[in-house]
Amino acid sequence: MLRLENVGLRYGDGPEILKDVSFAVRPGDFFFLTGPSGAGKSSLLKLLFLALRPTRGSLHIFGENVGSLNRQQLPPIRRRIGVVFQEFRLLEHLSTYDNVALPLRVAGKPEQAYRRDVMDLLDWVGLAHKSADLPPVLSGGEKQRAAIARAVIAKPQLLLADEPTGNVDPALAKRLLHLFLELNRLGTTMIIATHDRALVRQAERPVLHLEEGVLSLQ
């Protein structure tokens, strides 16, 4: 599903953020991505979401060599990927329900085909009672949960999450972990960047550790 070979990344003329990163991800894998702040975790996730391209080396995703693709070829690949950003990226003029339903609406599905699924997922993440609320009135933790629900509602083949439990309490973090594990059991491949060591211990999944731009498998 993913293969990186000697990938390097730098911004402009600055130092390399990622250095000779090589790893492969098979369908159904579940990896945690750990490392100190500034190690390059968010930059690596942006590469995998095709928001950035490698400065050097090669990145293959779903069998495609990203370096050979033009901009028009990227959106169909991105639609197979769910992403949870640290900054949430909710649309403030849309309700919680509409934000979560947006990927399905963009895909052209009729509301009657997905309304129950959206409400069930909102209930799972503890936001059913906030379905009509707009993002400005949600807490940070509620926005985080809405962002997670939006990322998984379309059952993506690959889910990338950047600190998905960073704004929730331990009990809810454990509940969200169960959601990720269930999605993985149903076939979604996962890469979750986190500082939460308790989350990593609970899941007992392999860890990709990034430090000073160098990746190792732990």
Rank of each mutant, 00 (worst) to 15 (best):
M1S: 13
R3L: 11
E5Y: 13
G8V: 08
D13P: 14
G14N: 14
K19M: 07
D20Q: 02
V21C: 00
S22F: 05
V25H: 04
P27N: 13
T34C: 05
L44P: 02
P54G: 06
T55H: 14
T55L: 12
E64Y: 11
N65H: 15
N65K: 15
V66M: 01
V66A: 02
Q72R: 12
Q72D: 14
P75N: 07
V83F: 04
Q86M: 03
F88H: 03
R89D: 01
R89W: 04
E92T: 05
E92V: 08
V106L: 08
G108T: 02
K109P: 10
K109I: 07
P110I: 07
E111Y: 13
L121Y: 04
V125M: 02
H129S: 08
H129P: 07
K130W: 13
A132N: 11
D133M: 15
G140M: 08
G141Q: 07
E142Y: 09
E142F: 08
Q144S: 02
V152G: 07
K155T: 12
K155F: 11
P156Q: 13
L159F: 01
P164V: 00
A171I: 09
A173S: 05
K174C: 10
L176F: 08
H178N: 15
H178L: 15
L179I: 06
F180N: 03
E182Y: 11
L183M: 10
L186R: 11
M190R: 10
A193N: 11
L199G: 07
A203K: 12
L208D: 00
E211W: 14
E212F: 09
E212S: 14
G213R: 04
